[in-house]
């Protein structure tokens, strides 16, 4: 079985190569997030990693307007934190970018985009 570190590395490497992949359980026929070495439903091992389409919908969002998080995020205010429900099922936490905060709406269609921030490649979402 993959270790927790290997699972994490695999996931973040897929993000770095701009093809975010989620762990897939063949037995349960589902992708899951966040990545863990075992399927949360059947406790079986990851069958494979499947690249996501990158399409999703805003499940909920919150525009952060106060320096609640110290460090670089103080310079980024206001920014939009959102749960995005991916087409594949899982819900991921991310930021909505390339969109004024007041225009982000629940249920809106978004598309994945990748950005390097503070030396780490991240998956972000922009209006589709």
């Amino acid at each position: 079985m993959m270790t927790d570190q290997e699972v994490s590395d695999h996931f973040w490497n897929s993000v770095k190569s701009k093809a975010m992949a989620l762990p897939w359980c063949a037995k349960c026929a589902r992708a899951f997030f966040y990545p863990k070495p075992i399927c949360p439903d059947c406790w079986g091992e990851i069958s494979e990693w499947k690249a996501v389409s990158g399409r999703g919908k805003v499940w909920s969002h919150s525009v952060v307007r106060f320096p609640l998080v110290r460090g670089p995020f103080e310079e980024r205010l206001p920014y939009t934190v959102a749960f995005v429900a991916l087409e594949e099922g899982p819900r991921v936490l991310s930021n909505i970018v390339a969109c004024p905060p007041e225009e982000v709406k629940g249920g809106m269609d978004v598309q994945i985009t990748y950005e390097e921030r503070d030396g780490k490649w991240l998956y972000l979402f922009k209006p589709a």
């Binding site: 994490s8 609640l68 998080v69 995020f73 991310s94 249920g107 991240l122």
Partner: peptide, 27 residues
């Protein structure tokens, strides 16, 4: 748990967590 999928997005504050739920409720 799960901080590596939370903190890179500036979401590491209970106010943000509950803001997400609150916005979903309003919607």
């Amino acid at each position: 748990n799960g901080e590596e999928y939370e903190l890179p997005f500036g979401a590491g504050s209970p106010l943000i967590w509950y803001g997400l739920m609150a916005q979903r409720y309003l919607d």
